[in-house]
C-alpha cells in the first residue's frame, strides 16, 4: 500500500509540476513540488526511503525533461538521504523545522545544479543567479512545504496506523 502510494505520488508530482505549476509562477519562478515531496518523505520516514524515492523521482524527471539522465538522479538521491539523516529525532508535528530543511535543500540542489550544468556553459555570475532564480525558489518552496508536509504527515499517520497491525506477522 505504502509503495503503491509512493508510485502514484511520483507520477502525480511530475504531472502537476509540469502542467499546473506553470500557472502559479511568481516573476517567472515556480516552486518545485518534486523536491518538496522528497524532503517531506525523507523527514517523515528515514534516509533510505528518502533516497529511494529521490532516485526514482529524479530518474523520471531526467528521462522525461532533461537533455541527459543523471544530474537530477544524483541530486535528488543524495538530498533525500541527507534530509533523512538530519531529522532523526524531532516531533513530526513541528513544521517549522521541515520548512527550514526544505529551504536549505532547495538552495543546495539548485546551487549544485548551477555548478554542474549552468556554470560550465559560461555563466559565471553566480550572484545574479542566486538572486534571480535560487533564492526566490527557496522562499517559494519553504511556503509550499507548509502545505505538502502537512498532507504527507496526515497520510503517513494513517499508513503507519495500518502497518502497526501487519508487522506482528513477521
Amino acid at each position: 500500500m505504502r509503495y503503491f502510494l509512493y508510485f502514484i505520488s511520483v507520477i502525480l508530482n511530475i504531472v502537476l509540476q509540469s502542467t499546473l505549476f506553470e500557472h502559479i509562477t511568481l516573476a517567472g519562478i515556480k516552486p518545485n513540488l518534486i523536491l518538496v515531496s522528497i524532503v517531506s518523505i525523507a523527514c517523515l520516514r528515514d534516509e533510505t526511503e528518502g533516497a529511494v524515492y529521490g532516485f526514482f523521482a529524479g530518474f523520471l524527471q531526467d528521462s522525461f525533461f532533461s537533455g541527459y539522465i543523471g544530474s537530477y538522479v544524483f541530486l535528488y538521491t543524495f538530498i533525500g538521504y541527507f534530509c533523512g539523516l538530519l531529522l532523526k529525532s524531532f516531533y513530526r508535528e513541528n513544521f517549522i523545522l521541515p520548512m527550514g530543511i526544505a529551504a536549505a535543500a532547495t538552495f543546495a540542489v539548485n546551487f549544485a545544479y548551477y555548478a554542474m550544468n549552468v556554470l560550465l556553459r559560461g555563466y559565471a555570475n553566480a550572484v545574479y543567479f542566486i538572486g534571480r532564480i535560487i533564492l526566490p525558489e527557496t522562499v517559494y518552496n519553504a511556503l509550499l512545504m507548509l502545505i505538502v508536509y502537512n498532507l504527507y504527515l496526515y497520510i503517513n499517520k494513517y499508513l503507519e496506523e495500518e502497518e502497526k497491525y501487519k508487522r506482528k506477522v513477521f
Partner: peptide
C-alpha cells in the same frame, strides 16, 4: 503544448 520543463533553468516544453 501540454507540459513545460519542471525546473527554472530551461525553457523546454512538450
Amino acid at each position: 503544448i501540454i507540459a513545460k520543463d519542471p525546473g527554472n533553468w530551461y525553457n523546454n516544453f512538450i
